[in-house]
Design a protein around this nucleic acid. Structure first.
Lengths: 151, 151
DNA sequence: TATGAAACAATGGCCAG
DNA sequence: CTGGCCATTGTTTCATA
């Protein structure tokens, strides 16, 4: 599963435009279209590329409020239980177990402040959640492609 | 810029597979391929869809360490200055100004713990940064499509 | 919004290095 | 084993209604 330089350049190109044709990518990296396709197929099989997604502006869809919530659990809290306590809330777009004071960190998006408040109340009703600490996002300064650095 | 139900279903389809053909999307939503294309073109013009990106597994590229850093500045720290202090670090994949104790929250990815440590030291040398508080990601529980909820 | 035509892209087979 | 080329099939994209 070792990637050579050509693979990395193909991935970089697909991070910028997942709908680029194989011929376009080939022009950029110096390969023919079928050669690019074979590499992309291989990268998908190996799990380096897991899919292709549209990049959508949540604000344009009416989701204008974003927050990070540190979660503190009481007692036992395996990753599975943590997962169970947040997966049902569709506002949660990412969740992590972390080192440090908090047990978990979740990233959520809501339509507005009222919706955020409603979501927080709903989260706090989860039995194992003892405490939450909310940081509302004021501005997004950086948001790189697929959350993956320059390959 | 109002989206109807057809638009939302097209966006949902493209979030799952940005390389789906217009004909495939048309089959799924009950439209002809050209009709789908014109809607997608319009959604891009309106900024609802800002691009298409490959979804890459950072671990497969050798980026196995992930962390969130709360940043505390001393004195003046406009969003622009905050941006300037983090943009040059390629390990930073997202950065936000937030409410709460910290002034900013950054999300970063490194190849390993040594690389994370090196990045933290580099960040702490930024003149305006007074203090940092790091939470290393132990496991990712949820990571929804484009960081955008169900449209 | 659908249809049809022309241009373009994807993809499998096959051969060369 | 990896890339190039060719031919087939499918897709995009325009004109037109």
């Amino acid at each position: 599963m070792r990637l050579d330089d050509l693979d990395r350049r193909i991935v970089a190109r697909l991070l910028e435009d997942a709908r680029a044709s194989y011929a376009q990518i080939g022009d950029a990296v110096g390969l023919s279209a079928p050669a690019v396709k074979r590499r992309v197929d291989r990268l998908r099989e190996e799990g380096v590329i897991t899919g292709f997604a549209a990049v959508v502006d949540p604000a344009a869809l009416g989701w204008t409020t974003e927050a990070f919530i540190e979660i503190f659990y009481n007692g036992a809290r395996s990753p599975e239980e943590t997962y169970e306590s947040v997966r049902r809330h569709p506002e949660v777009i990412a969740a992590y177990t972390v080192t440090g004071e908090a047990d978990a960190l979740i990233h959520l998006r809501a339509r507005d402040i009222a919706h955020l408040e409603e979501t927080l109340e709903r989260l706090r009703r989860e039995p194992k959640i003892a405490q939450t600490k909310t940081s509302i996002v004021l501005s997004r300064l950086i948001g790189r492609p697929t959350d993956g650095p320059d390959t």
